[in-house]
Amino acid sequence: MISVSNLSYAFKIGKKGKENIVPVLHDVNLQVAEGEIVAVVGRSGSGKSTLLNLISGFIQPEVGNITINRTNLSKFSESKWAEFRLNHLGFIFQSFQLIPSMSAFENVELPLVLKGVSVPERKVRTEEMLKRVGLESFKNHYPGELSGGQQQRVSIARALILNPPLILADEPTGSLDSENEKQLLSFIKELNEKYGITFLMITHDHEVASIAHRKVEIIDGYLREGRMLHEVQR
């Protein structure tokens, strides 16, 4: 599903021509199989979010290749990346990233709108998805009127509405209480088992990492695969 090879990235800080180059990722290689849940763990500043941002296309790699679903994305333009994200990727963010001026229904509907799906089909699919995440009675509520757990469920519904084969999650439980965290993790497991959706999650939470089939660790920009949780903690 995901193939990252020889990926390196460095931030350029400062004025043009006088930039300080701060290397973040060094020669990263990562393979994620279809239907797998992979947790990327690492300390703050280790480069795990940068890796997710590169795989999401939010930043462009300088060295190395990223392939998703056999599509080499390294040389994609911004427009092509946007289209690819819409058609193949779903996103779950730590802070939900819902548009505050849109209702839960409109937020979930947004990817369908961007895709140009007809209004009647959009209505059916959005209502079905809100039902699936248990928010059918909150469809007209705005994000500000929902709890953190409900907002994250809206965010998941939005990520799933176009049935993407891959979901990228950046600290998905970061803003949730333990009860909501448990619910979310069981939901992710259910989605993976029932529908075979692949998950790549960035987390430093042990609970979250525990549902993953495989964990990879990033230490100072270098990726180490297959370390056990207690080793990562140490």
Binding site: E78, S79, A82, E83, L86, P111, L114
Partner: peptide, 15 residues
Amino acid sequence: QDIGIMKAIGATPKT
């Protein structure tokens, strides 16, 4: 922020 969210989930610059 809304623009960023839209771009993140798949809105093209043209849109």
